[in-house]
């Protein structure tokens, strides 16, 4: 048989954690949380543009995912699965709460001030949220934070791959300019 060398890809680690949860294994939830919480939070933040709502959505996503784990079927796209749960929860929030989102940039900045993080981190997050369009920031966060491949993003957002790639590059360039220009932006 041919030689098998193996480095476990992230998607596989996530799959394993979800199986572990389904299987009642201790620590699997924590592992899944460590692997995916920042991506889920970042995604929720790009959709809701509201720190508090994003935190709610993140919690709900994990709880929902925990319930759904026994029925989970891996298609090697666990991150996409989790983010689709998060997206539905964001939509629920929109429906149930008309006040939601479109906080002003100033309100968002004030919210971010409550987060313990350094200046650069806040600048990056705020720039993503206020300088990029909804679609651009979703693409950036899914790939840069969630590690979702461009092809998969294209499928999820129903966009041609080239569009995703060019939007991604353009967005990255915008952020790069902002970061290099310091806080003048």
């Amino acid at each position: 048989m041919s030689r098998q060398t193996y480095k476990m890809p992230r998607s596989h680690q996530i799959d394993n954690a979800i199986y572990g949860i389904a299987n009642g294994e201790e620590n699997s939830l924590r592992t899944l949380y460590q692997l995916t919480s920042s991506a889920v939070y970042a995604y929720a933040l790009t959709v809701t543009k509201n720190v508090f709502d994003a935190q709610d959505v993140m919690q709900e996503t994990f709880v929902k995912m925990y319930d759904a784990a026994p029925n989970y079927i891996s298609r090697n796209r666990p991150m996409a699965w989790m983010l689709s749960i998060a997206r539905n929860l964001c939509m629920d929030k929109f429906r149930s709460n008309s006040r939601l989102t479109d906080v002003t940039d100033e309100q968002l900045e004030a919210q971010l001030q409550t987060v313990q993080a350094d200046v650069t981190d806040r600048l990056v997050v705020q720039s993503c949220l206020s300088k990029l369009s909804q679609q651009e920031r979703t693409i950036v966060v899914m790939h840069a934070v969630g590690g979702v491949r461009h092809r998969e993003i294209a499928r999820q957002l129903d966009l041609p791959l080239n569009t995703v790639l060019s939007k991604y590059k353009r967005s990255l360039q915008k952020l790069k300019d902002i970061l290099q220009g310091g806080k003048d932006e």
Binding site: S37, A39, P70, V115, R122, L123, V145
Partner: peptide, 29 residues
């Protein structure tokens, strides 16, 4: 970008964990 989002992510693991009841072992799918 990856790092910054990770750094601003609040740690709500304990809240989540409290809401997820321990599950009896189920045959792995």
């Amino acid at each position: 970008i990856g790092q910054s989002f990770s750094n601003v992510t609040p740690d709500v693991y304990n809240d989540i964990s409290a809401r997820c009841p321990t599950r009896a072992a189920v045959k792995r799918q």
